[in-house]
Amino acid sequence: MRVHAPIPRFGGRFLVAPLCLGIGVLAFAITAPEFLNTGNLQSIVAQMWILGLLAVGQMFAIASRGFDISVGATVALSSTIAALGANFFGLPGLFLGPLAGLGVGTLNGVLIGFVGVQPIVATLGMLVGVRGLSLLLTDDGQVVPLNDTATAARLAFDPVLGLPPAYWGAVAFVGLAAWILNRLAVGRRILMLGSNPDAIHLVGISFARTQIRAYQLCGFYAGLAGVLLTIRAGTGLPTEGTGMELQSIAAAVIGGTALSGGVARVSSVVLGAAFVQVLLTGLNLQGVSPFVAQIAVGLVIIGSGLLEYAIRHLAQVNSRSRT
């Protein structure tokens, strides 16, 4: 079945992320020479994929006119479950992490799509519940060390063709997301739902099911981020991920995802995540306290909203001058 997506009226929104990234890298390269160290760049690239996976998931939720603030908690839960799974079943047990994410996403989706709860309340409730669950699984937040730390370290730190295998996995899944969004009916439906919820009804596509798919994808990618975190840290981290929900929303919005839904591009979202990561790491290198970095991220989030306003405004002026 072929579903045509609306043509984005203003392609310029996707240029914002590379532009921000370029300016960010340039600014830090000038002010902090050690920023361009191979070691530092590698650590940014590594860190970035965790946020990148989260932001890609968030993109699906935002593209369907919602958002998911439970992703940070989902990262913690899937990290915990992946570590428990890996200790119990061996390495394939890591895949329980994304499954847990998928479960959380499904519940979110059912609450929002089927029951009709507002995304904010549903994902807020899930945020609290999922945090509780990961604490419950780990005796109030004890980390779960992996038994096979050597393999995890090899996956996370030994480059194969320039990048450690875990990150190749992340790249592959991000590619998969692009394929889902652009080529699969599910992705097109999510975009269609975001751009015009009434139209989707008229075409005969299930509103609820499409919304559930969007949140499932979001949860699944959060789960993947959790696994990546576990592999990198060598432990399951049940209390990690606070603040990540905001960073992922910021990355997705800077990456050109329209908060009004219906417009998204995976590559831009990844660049948006890279920008947020560069900002966090770069400020850290400058010897700035993490609190100032927190201010910066908060301002970036608000700034991304203002940017969206500017783009919308420009697009309006543009279309008016054309007619």
């Binding site: 919005v253 609190f291 991220v297 908060g298 970036v300």
Partner: peptide
């Protein structure tokens, strides 16, 4: 016309950072 959740979440973070600083 910014989405309230975005603005106030960003502000939550920025003000928390300011307070801690």
């Amino acid at each position: 016309d910014l989405p309230p959740f975005l603005v106030t979440l960003g502000m939550l973070m920025a003000v928390a950072g300011l307070a801690a600083t």
